[in-house]
Design a binder for these strands. Structure first.
Lengths: 223, 223
DNA sequence: ATTTAACGATAGTATTACTATTATATTTGT
DNA sequence: ACAAATATAATAGTAATACTATCGTTAAAT
């Protein structure tokens, strides 16, 4: 089932980039290595100049693909959410029991990504770390509303809508399916962040996962 | 009861600043106007040069108070959390019923700040907006662990611990009091952000508040 | 009256976040 | 096979950012 990705392409809204990085070797190297570099030095420290040096290419060449490093982060985020949506769909597809289906969905969106699927130049395990640490910055800007209108966040919104629909399938009288879905998604990332950096304000650790926490929270709210 | 703040001072960890802005007129103008300016142009667009111009002072003078704009944001965040902790304490102090107390606590930490208490140069209503839009950036950096060791986030952690204790008072068998408390706090901010910028992925609007959502979520989880 | 602290003004630096131009290499269409 | 189009590299340049350092003036404290 996973091999579907050999035939499908993760679709990122095309207004995010100037030139589709999937269409050239340089483009792929930009994506592959930006993930590695952002993870190493953080988004604030990351520059196109440093990336150029890392991939033995020129700063100006990277600008042909992305207008700014902010757009590149949005590309990476969208790519990740699309990839996660794909995981969500294939892993829940065959489950007919709606309760079970929802639990699987929560598992998929709140778990750690620890294995790289190896189907492309993108290392999902490292990308996942970037999502935990940096993805909020892709929408917490003065340009959100404009960028939202341009469709930059479509993938993210569709993913949340999907989870929300699974919540409704379990209990269609529940008044906050969208809020619960968005809380599970962002909250999942946040709990993982706390586990790594602020262990004194979370109960999550390696054995007691955010997944457990959010499944319990959801089940109690829907019954 | 609110007048306590005339006598008490909001305490921000002193490693965050070089010189305490509360100790001078210039310092107070820095704080007062940085809040206004960050709200206007966003944290990314904000610079000490622009702030200097706004307050009719010199860039280099601002550097005598804060090492960087990042530290200034951490100061504002800590100040806000301390102020919120104060609100939390006074508004829940006299409630003896633990269930009722917790609901009040959730109300305090997830509601909009729409009135400025006017006791100081700090406009809490505008500061609250900055917290919604920018506060995540104060800890989502490569320096978190170092800064955490230095005590920069003590106020934030104490606030969450307090809410967590109120959760435990209602049900001390609940396995995730800290995670629930941190989810309520960050989730509250996030739902307000969604309401303003991504209404299609939240059920919250002006009449149907994040407070309602989180109270329901909590009650269902603890019973 | 003198030391000390605070502030403003000016200057300077390395880096960032780009844009523009040109030359060269590679791919593609005919 | 050749011309045309496209992609990339190299270089240069710019305005702004994020600071640091120095110095003179003013105001406050001893």
């Amino acid at each position: 089932m996973k091999d579907l990705l050999a035939v499908l392409k993760i679709a990122v809204p095309d207004k995010i980039f100037i030139k589709d990085p999937e269409t050239s070797d340089l483009g792929k190297r930009i994506i592959e290595n930006s993930i590695i570099l952002i993870n190493e030095i953080g988004f604030e420290g990351f520059t196109f100049k440093k990336l150029g040096k890392k991939i033995g290419s020129n700063e100006s060449s990277i600008y042909r693909y992305f207008e700014s490093k902010h757009k590149l982060l949005q590309y990476l985020s969208s790519w990740y959410w699309a990839w996660l949506e794909y995981q969500l769909v294939i892993e829940t597809f065959s489950i007919s029991n709606s309760q079970e289906k929802l639990e699987k969905a929560i598992t998929v969106v709140t778990r750690i990504v620890k294995e790289d699927s190896n189907y492309s130049h993108i290392n999902e395990t490292i990308l996942y770390k970037i999502i935990v640490n940096e993805s909020s910055k892709s929408f917490l800007t003065k340009e959100v509303d404009l960028e939202n209108k341009e469709g930059y966040f479509e993938v993210y919104k569709r993913l949340i809508t999907r989870v929300s629909e699974m919540i409704e399938a379990v209990n269609n009288n529940y008044p906050f399916p969208l809020s619960l879905a968005s809380t599970i998604l962002e909250g999942g990332l946040h709990q993982h962040y706390l586990k790594d950096h602020f262990p004194s304000i979370t109960n999550c650790k390696s054995e007691k996962t955010p997944t457990e926490f959010f499944i319990q929270l959801t089940n109690n709210s829907l019954k």
